[in-house]
Simulated assay, not measured.
Amino acid sequence: MTTFRRWCGLWLGLLALAPALAGTPAPLPADAQVDGLRYAQLTAAWWQWALTVPVQPYLDPDGRFCGEGQRGSVWFLAGTAGGAPVNRRCEVPEGKYLLLPIINMYHASRYVENGQVLPMKACTDVRERAALNNDHLQSAEVLVDGARLPGIRQYRVASGCFDLHPETASQPGQVRTLAASDGYWLLLPPLPKGRHTISVGANYGKPGAAYGRMVQSFAYELWIGGKPRWAFAPAASASRRAEPAG
């Protein structure tokens, strides 16, 4: 009987660790909405989140800060600022959509002329600068639970202009800071409960530009619905003014 119980426990553990057997959900299409927000609005919200939490999420060394500032139906993941690959482990509540940056840039500017903010001039400038390196994507690959996701280039998203710090924009004496993001993102539907892995590799190919040769490489071990007490496997390895991140 003891042996039988051990085998049952092992079998249940294998089921929890192999959610990919049920199929990997495809990314939401480019015109999808979650809570009335499209990709462009969600990527703007991602940057507003990334620059207000105590530790910028693309600098998180191992996932210890992955829950900072998370709210709503969409859970934000993060890439890196370029350089060495990063492996992170993160527990995510069930039912959350995942916004996954592949490689992207943002640019922000404060424009004042004769005491007046010039939002249209600022918007044109920041959008062009944010797009600069994304016009030269060289490669991009995303694996979810070991399965390669096709058609990454169709998920380029330009946010349009937004207030980088909307919580202070209306305060007296504050100059409006306009920002824009441009890059490649995926919005994944809620994953089944259990362990999942996401690996991302991408790079630009624009010589001579700031971050024009940026390389993005990171991996997540995600525990949807929390990590069981017996689970302790290590994360798998992954194959401003313009600011990189992902």
Results as ranks from 00 to 15, higher is better:
Ala158Gln: 11
His165Asp: 11
Arg110Cys: 09
Arg129Met: 10
Pro190Asp: 15
Pro119Asn: 08
Gly183Lys: 01
Tyr211His: 15
Val53Asn: 02
Val142Trp: 14
His136Asp: 11
Val142Phe: 12
Tyr211Gln: 11
Ala236Leu: 14
Ser159Phe: 01
Val200Ser: 13
Ser181His: 13
Gly83Gln: 13
Arg241Tyr: 07
Ala158Arg: 12
Ala147Thr: 15
Leu118His: 04
Val157Ile: 13
Leu14Val: 01
Arg176Gln: 08
Thr43Gln: 10
Leu188Ile: 06
Pro57Thr: 10
Pro234Ala: 05
Asn87Val: 14
Ala40Leu: 02
Val86Arg: 08
Val117Ser: 12
Ile224Val: 15
Thr177Cys: 04
Asp135Arg: 08
Arg71Phe: 04
Cys66Leu: 04
His165Glu: 12
Leu222Gly: 03
Leu42Gln: 05
Val126Phe: 07
Gly83Met: 14
Glu128Met: 11
Asp145Cys: 00
Asn134Gly: 09
Ser170Cys: 00
Val175Trp: 15
Ser181Ala: 13
Ser181Cys: 13
Cys161Ser: 05
Val55Met: 11
Pro172Val: 08
Pro25Leu: 01
Arg127Val: 15
Arg195Lys: 15
Ala20His: 02
Asn134Asp: 14
Trp49Leu: 06
Pro54Val: 02
Gly201Asn: 12
Ala233Ile: 09
Ala78Tyr: 11
Pro29Leu: 03
Gly79Asp: 07
Thr197Asn: 10
Val126Ile: 15
Pro244Asp: 06
Leu132Ala: 12
Glu167Ile: 03
Pro207Met: 09
Ala20Phe: 03
Ser139Thr: 15
Tyr220Gln: 06
Ile152Asp: 02
Arg213Gln: 13
Arg229Asp: 14
Gly146Lys: 04
Ile103Trp: 03
Trp223Leu: 09
Pro19Lys: 04
Leu99Asn: 05
Leu14Asp: 00
Lys96Ser: 10
Gly72Glu: 00
Val144Gly: 01
Trp7Gln: 07
Pro25Arg: 01
Arg5Lys: 05
Val144Asp: 10
Glu94Gln: 14
Ala242Ile: 14
Ala219Met: 09
Gly82Tyr: 07
Val157Asn: 01
Gln56Lys: 01
Trp49Pro: 03
Tyr58Asn: 08
Gly208Ser: 05
Ala233Arg: 09
Ala44Lys: 02
Pro234Met: 06
Leu188Ser: 04
Val157Gly: 00
Gly13Tyr: 00
Tyr184His: 10
Gln56Leu: 00
Ala122Gly: 13
Ala78His: 10
Pro172Ile: 08
Ala238Lys: 07
Gly23Asn: 01
Ala180Pro: 12
Ala169Thr: 15
Ala169Lys: 14
Leu137Cys: 06
Gln216Pro: 05
Gly67Val: 01
Ile198Gly: 03
Gly9Met: 08
Glu221Thr: 15
Asn203Leu: 08
Tyr211Met: 07
Pro101Met: 02
Gly63Lys: 00
Gln171Cys: 03
Arg240Ser: 13
Cys123Trp: 06
